[in-house]
């Protein structure tokens, strides 16, 4: 008989695991403290506020462009009878063709903006070759695609600037000595990483919500439901994409002596990763292709394209891979950190 007792977890063990002095509990304690400390730190808040401000500003510009396009699409005649003359692709004395096709009655203008051939389309889809992905993306509100595109490019930079100093700052102030007597270095570093990951995830979510708010304010046919649904698809992907970069930031932070050095090392690392990825893409077909491919596998950028795929079955494994890469970089940092003088 399958009695409840046969499946019951021994309570003291479980309680001890979560609330006793265990690595798991210590990591959670450090993470919670890190998160609260960052939320009260003026410097950290200033950096995060700047990021949000930049997100708001760029999305405002983007939405303003959308707004103008919407207005133009509603009055195609203005486009068809636009200026005449020898522009590129036009013939002297004849009016140019419409820049954008009018919106079908059952489709909001955001769909038009992602049709192939439009400038916006080219920007977004330059990274995506899969037709399923293109169809999937066409259904997403452009503001979220813009949010994802910008985040995939600038979120790593924010991580290097804001998170790379977290452990190094503790070394510089020697505040780490208060903690190092009370818990292991692995718990300390992992807790710090976890706290930073939570903070960064919250910041990207805020940035996404900020983009949606601006879109709701400026665009007439914006619907919150579609926007939030799309944000819930892309926000986790953006957050997970940041994990390997956070891992690299932690690696630098654990093994440098000052906050400035850690940040510099993180930014140099980021630049090197980017350049390496570009080189690997360029020389993928050369004799060194397989070797470069293995190296590229360790770089977060090589996993980015799959995050645009519609299905979680496609994007999920890449997200797991990115999370694993992040943990791997932290572990590499720990290999050195556990032996260094504090």
């Amino acid at each position: 008989m399958w009695g409840a007792a046969q499946f019951s977890v021994p309570r003291p063990f479980f309680t001890n695991l979560m609330f006793g002095p265990t690595p798991l509990r210590d990591t959670a304690l450090v993470a919670g403290f890190e998160l609260r400390e960052m939320l009260r730190s003026r410097k950290a808040l200033a950096i995060l506020a700047l990021y949000l401000l930049a997100a708001a500003f760029t999305s405002y510009i983007f939405v303003s462009v959308l707004e103008n396009i919407q207005a133009a699409v509603r009055n195609p005649a203005a486009l068809i009878t636009g200026p005449t003359g020898g522009g590129r692709g036009g013939q002297p004395g004849r009016p140019r063709g419409p820049v954008f096709a009018p919106s079908p009655p059952d489709k909001p203008s955001q769909g038009i903006l992602t049709q192939r051939g439009s400038p916006f389309n080219r920007v977004i889809f330059s990274q995506v070759a899969d037709p399923d992905a293109r169809d999937f993306l066409e259904k997403q509100p452009p503001i979220i695609l813009f949010f994802a595109l910008v985040s995939f490019n600038f979120f790593p930079l924010l991580i290097m600037i804001a998170s790379a100093e977290t452990v190094a700052q503790e070394h510089q102030s020697r505040g780490v000595r208060f903690v190092a007597m009370r818990t292991g270095r692995a718990e300390f570093a992992l807790g710090k990483a976890l706290g930073q990951a939570a903070l960064m995830a919250a910041v990207t979510l805020l940035a996404g919500l900020l983009c949606l708010t601006i879109a709701a304010w400026k665009l007439e046919d914006f619907t919150w439901g579609a926007g939030l649904r799309s944000l819930l698809v892309f926000w986790p992907r953006v957050a997970v994409f940041g994990l390997p970069f956070l891992g690299i930031a932690m690696l630098c932070s654990m093994n440098t002596g000052s906050a400035m050095m850690a940040r510099a090392a993180g930014l140099i690392g980021l630049a090197l990763l980017f350049v390496a990825h570009q080189l690997v893409e360029k020389y993928a077909d050369s004799a060194f292709g397989p070797v470069l491919g293995v190296l590229d596998f360790l770089a977060p950028y090589s996993h980015r394209d799959d995050l645009w795929l519609p299905s979680w079955n496609d994007a999920g494994p890449q997200m797991l891979m990115l999370a694993g890469l992040g943990l791997g970089y932290v572990c590499v940092g720990l290999l050195f950190y556990r032996r260094r003088d504090l």
């Binding site: 403290f33 009260r40 780490v176």
Partner: peptide, 8 residues
Amino acid sequence: DSALGRDM
């Protein structure tokens, strides 16, 4: 010469 977290 160790400093505690300043913002807590």
